[in-house]
Simulated scan of single mutants.
Amino acid sequence: MAQPAFEEVVEDFEFLDDWEDRYRMVIEMGKAMDPLDDALKVPATKVDGCASQVWLHPRIEDGHFHFEGDSDAVIVRGLIALLRRLYDGLPMPAVLDVDAKAELGRLGLEENLSSQRSNGLRAMIERIRGLAAEHA
């Protein structure tokens, strides 16, 4: 079972008939995120493997995983917002238990993203899992 915030996205997607509406929703989620402070956009937070510029900045508070992120591409900012709904606030060990591919598959993302965006999404998930593994 995913985080309640992610379950809300799944429910919202069920009411949207076409992918243009779903893309708009993802983009709006990204626009609603606060931008990452420029001081945090450094090589250590940059995600390799993405066609666009992507930064993920993790925080561990009281054994729970939190992160902020940003991108220079609006759709990728939306994907970061989705990942925040999937992972943010989980206890550290639970981050590694999330089957992101299956959860995101519930949204039909894989078959509706370009191969570059799919690769970037996988790179972000791998970074999140790697950060969690370092602190678990």
Rank of each mutant, 00 (worst) to 15 (best):
V74Q: 15
D18F: 03
D48A: 14
G120C: 11
R117K: 14
H66F: 08
A81Q: 14
I125P: 12
L109S: 02
R85H: 12
M33G: 03
R59W: 01
E126Q: 13
V98Q: 00
C50S: 10
D72P: 03
R117S: 11
A32E: 15
D38R: 06
A123Y: 04
R122K: 14
G120D: 12
S114H: 09
L121Y: 03
E110Y: 10
H135F: 01
M1P: 12
L79V: 05
A2Q: 04
A100E: 08
L109Q: 02
M1Q: 11
E7F: 01
Y87C: 05
P35L: 09
Y87A: 05
E11L: 15
G89K: 00
L121C: 09
D62P: 03
L113T: 11
E11W: 06
M124Q: 13
A102F: 00
W19Q: 02
M124G: 14
L104I: 11
D12H: 08
R129F: 06
H64R: 15
S52A: 14
R24W: 12
E8G: 04
Y23N: 09
D72M: 12
W19A: 06
D12P: 02
A133G: 06
V54L: 04
A44T: 08
D12C: 07
L121F: 00
K101D: 15
A73H: 06
N119A: 03
E126K: 12
R59A: 14
P4M: 00
G49Y: 06
D48I: 13
D37F: 05
S52V: 13
H57P: 02
G120P: 13
I27E: 10
E111V: 08
P35E: 07
R85E: 05
M29G: 11
R127H: 15
G69C: 14
H66V: 10
D34L: 11
A5V: 09
E20C: 02
D48H: 07
R22H: 01
Q3N: 15
P4R: 02
F13M: 00
M25A: 07
E126Y: 07
G108I: 04
I27G: 04
S52I: 14
D18L: 05
G30T: 15
D97E: 12
M29P: 09
Q3G: 02
I75T: 15
Y87H: 05
V26F: 03
H64N: 07
V98N: 02
E110Q: 12
L36K: 13
L131W: 14
V95D: 04
R77F: 11
I60Q: 12
L79H: 10
L109G: 03
A133K: 13
E14V: 06
V10M: 00
M33L: 15
E11M: 04
S114E: 09
G108Q: 11
V74H: 14
S118F: 06
R84Q: 13
A39V: 14
L121G: 02
A123W: 03
D21Q: 13
V47F: 01
N112K: 10
D17Q: 12
D18S: 08
L131Y: 12
L86Q: 06
E126L: 05
G89C: 03
L96K: 03
G63H: 00
S118K: 07
R22V: 03
R59H: 14
D12A: 11
L104T: 05
